[in-house]
Computed example of a mutant assay.
Amino acid sequence: MIFFEYPFNEHIRAYLRLEYLLDRFIFSMNSNDVRLHQVAVSTFFDIIDLVERSDVKGAILQDLEKQRLFLLNFRERSGVDQKSLELALVEIKKISSNLATSPKPGNILRENEWLNSVKSKLLVYGCAAQSDMPSYHFWQYKTEKERREDLFRWFSYIQPLSESLKIALILLRDSGSFFDCLAVDGAYKEMLGGKIYQLLRIGVDYKIGVFPEMSANKHMVWVRFFFQDENFKAKSVIDNVNFSMSLCK
Rank of each mutant, 00 (worst) to 15 (best):
F3L: 01
Y6C: 02
P7M: 09
R13I: 03
A14C: 07
Y15C: 01
L16I: 05
E19C: 09
Y20M: 11
L22I: 13
R24L: 15
I26K: 04
S28M: 07
S28E: 08
M29T: 13
N30R: 14
N30Q: 13
N30I: 08
S31Q: 05
N32W: 11
D33P: 03
R35D: 15
R35A: 14
L36A: 13
V39F: 09
S42Q: 02
D46T: 02
D49P: 04
V51E: 02
S54C: 07
I60P: 03
K66W: 06
K66E: 09
L72P: 01
N73P: 00
F74N: 01
R75D: 02
E76W: 12
R77F: 12
R77A: 15
G79W: 14
G79D: 14
G79F: 13
D81W: 08
Q82N: 03
K83D: 06
A88W: 02
A88H: 04
I92M: 04
K94S: 04
I95M: 07
S97R: 12
L99N: 03
L99F: 09
T101S: 14
P103G: 14
P105I: 08
G106W: 10
L109Q: 06
E111N: 09
N112A: 08
W114V: 09
W114H: 09
L115C: 01
L115N: 00
S117C: 07
S117Q: 12
V118N: 08
V118D: 12
K119I: 06
K121R: 06
V124W: 08
G126P: 02
C127L: 07
A128Y: 05
A128F: 07
A129P: 00
A129V: 00
Q130N: 02
D132M: 01
D132F: 00
D132Q: 00
P134H: 05
S135T: 05
S135V: 03
Y136G: 00
F138P: 00
F138L: 10
Y141N: 14
K142S: 12
K142L: 13
R147A: 01
E149K: 14
R153D: 14
S156Q: 05
I158A: 08
I158S: 05
S162T: 11
K166C: 04
I167M: 13
I167G: 03
A168Y: 06
L169D: 05
L171V: 00
L172T: 08
D174V: 07
D174G: 06
F178Y: 15
F179P: 01
L182E: 04
D185N: 15
G186T: 12
A187I: 11
Y188G: 10
K189E: 15
L192F: 09
G193D: 08
G194T: 14
G194E: 11
G194V: 14
K195I: 13
Y197C: 10
R201C: 15
R201G: 13
I202C: 06
G203L: 07
K207A: 00
I208A: 01
G209C: 12
F211R: 05
F211S: 06
P212T: 06
P212Q: 11
A216F: 08
H219E: 10
M220C: 10
F226I: 02
N231L: 13
K235I: 08
K235N: 07
I238K: 13
I238M: 11
D239R: 06
D239Y: 06
N240H: 14
N242I: 12
F243S: 00
S246L: 03
S246R: 03
L247C: 04
C248L: 07
